[in-house]
Design a protein around this nucleic acid. Structure first.
Lengths: 116, 116
DNA sequence: TGTAAATATTTACGTGTGTCTATGTCCTTG
DNA sequence: CAAGGACATAGACACACGTAAATATTTACA
């Protein structure tokens, strides 16, 4: 197995943007997380999952929410999963994705944390 | 002049991700903001400016913080400015950029806002 | 065991992004 | 008004990204 940190593990280690300059390694760790969110489809996927009842949603429901092909949705879900923003669980034929809210909150405090 | 909203104006109007699904127009308004931040160089630029004394920094200082060409830094600053994350002010020969902290805070509460 | 449904992977393609070099513009000062 | 410094713009190029079509994989069930 790899010793690499997922992006979501990286973000928890940094003070807010307004507090201190980010080092290059820190920035390189955090950027992939933001990149994963920086797409209209993935933003909507994330909000659909995160606001869904039980904090999770089945891929079948997510597919229906977009006018995009199933492989395209699967691709976006994979990116969010690899970034550490979504957890994946297979139950029978269906796959459920769950939002990692602590990852979102770490990211939020990095971006919007207070200066002092 | 244009009637378009800048991304930063868009973000203030949406509930947190975990609260309700984002509409397509909402997501398309917010994604550019995240995209602007989703790059290691721009993340560092943003944190350099935001954490700098007085909340602003001169381009000349920012150039020195990277091993990139001056036009490349200028390009990144332009993207951050167009997204509404940085304000631009020319004073004499120098240009100063200032972080729009309320934009960062709106973005943060969108991403990490509590569910209920 | 074989068939259908749910999801993922592969491949391909047009478009967008990050970077550089070269050049332009604006301001200051001699 | 000429020259130089600070910053922006334009053009070019390699690479990454979003999407779709075709195909593979996994699971349930008749």
């Amino acid at each position: 197995m790899s010793l690499e940190l997922t992006p979501v593990q990286t973000v928890a280690c940094c003070p807010p943007l307004v507090r201190a300059p980010l080092s290059l390694p820190e920035a390189e760790g955090i950027a992939p997380l933001l990149k994963a969110l920086a797409d209209p489809v993935r933003l909507r996927l994330m909000s659909l999952v995160a606001s869904h009842e039980g904090g999770e949603a089945c891929v079948c429901e997510l597919n229906d929410a977009f006018e995009l092909s199933q492989p395209t949705i699967s691709h976006h879900l994979k990116l969010l999963h690899e970034a550490g923003l979504l957890e994946r669980e297979k139950r029978g034929v269906w796959v459920y994705y769950r939002a990692r809210t602590e990852a979102l909150q770490n990211l939020a405090s990095l971006i919007g944390g207070r200066a002092k």
